[in-house]
Design a protein around this nucleic acid. Structure first.
Lengths: 136, 136
DNA sequence: CCGAATATTAGACAAAGTCCAGATTGCTGA
DNA sequence: TCAGCAATCTGGACTTTGTCTAATATTCGG
């Protein structure tokens, strides 16, 4: 897969998102790296050369991507949200001291014995986070 | 189990925590309710009558309780951390729209097929969060 | 190329949480 | 009893993440 800026435009369009210059840059930042990035990190990447994209736009765009199913939100650190360009079913491994976050393929993992949901509720997602720490 | 303030003092001592007035109040707030509370909520409860405990103390105390294994931290909402007086193994059910958080007993749930940990790492905990939403 | 709709922007604002230096508390031993 | 000392608590300034708003800029269909 080639994450050129041109392909980003197509990706955005296919998710019903108007591909503007800023949105393409932000998508490129996330998808070319295939990493979990915080809003802060996205902003830093997008504005490396000279400031091009405002804070508000970064936040708006990430929220838009989230709504349109282009990225996933990962909540592991109380101080910041990570955005994950991998939307296929998977879980997360979080290294507490370094803050490094990596994927665990959901295909191998089996979760059984969950209780029935309360009436009138539907599952929006199941997040499994394995918190690990370096042996000291 | 009786969560009187006197018993709180014993609980604190048994966890190697000096039982001060403020710490007893905070422990009482958490344990008498057996609910997930945010720092904000704890502060509101403790200071209902007249302001008695400062913000700094509430945060310091909750962090201390966490270190001493008296409470658990639950990270489900990016905007605030919840503190959980239930430290027995369990998972969480989070109602996205109402913000309500409830427990899922870990005894019934089986998680299998997790990949081996990276070298030199130990598991600090496994958080399983089922996010649900009311059918609209 | 025009005008409407859609995006972007700077900067003010809000909320959660941290930090610090000074004031309080509660022991301890004489 | 009380001075000395360590532990604790405090208000308030500060930081960081994220939201909001009103003005400006861009885009797109016709």
């Amino acid at each position: 897969m080639d994450y050129t800026r041109d392909n980003m435009a197509g990706l955005l369009r296919s998710h019903d998102i108007n591909p503007t210059h800023q949105r393409i840059e932000i998508a490129h930042a996330l998808f070319s790296r295939q990493e979990h990035l915080s809003a802060d990190q996205v902003m830093a990447i997008v504005n490396t050369r000279h400031s091009e994209t405002s804070k508000a736009t970064v936040y708006n765009t990430l929220k838009l991507f989230l709504e349109k199913g282009l990225v996933r939100e990962v909540i592991v650190d109380p101080s910041k949200v990570f955005f994950d360009p991998n939307t296929s079913p998977h879980h997360h491994l979080y290294e507490v001291d370094s803050g490094k976050l990596s994927d665990i393929d959901a295909a191998q993992v089996r979760i059984s014995g969950l209780p029935p949901l309360p009436d009138g509720m539907v599952t929006e997602g199941i997040d499994l986070i394995v918190r690990v720490r370096r042996i000291s």
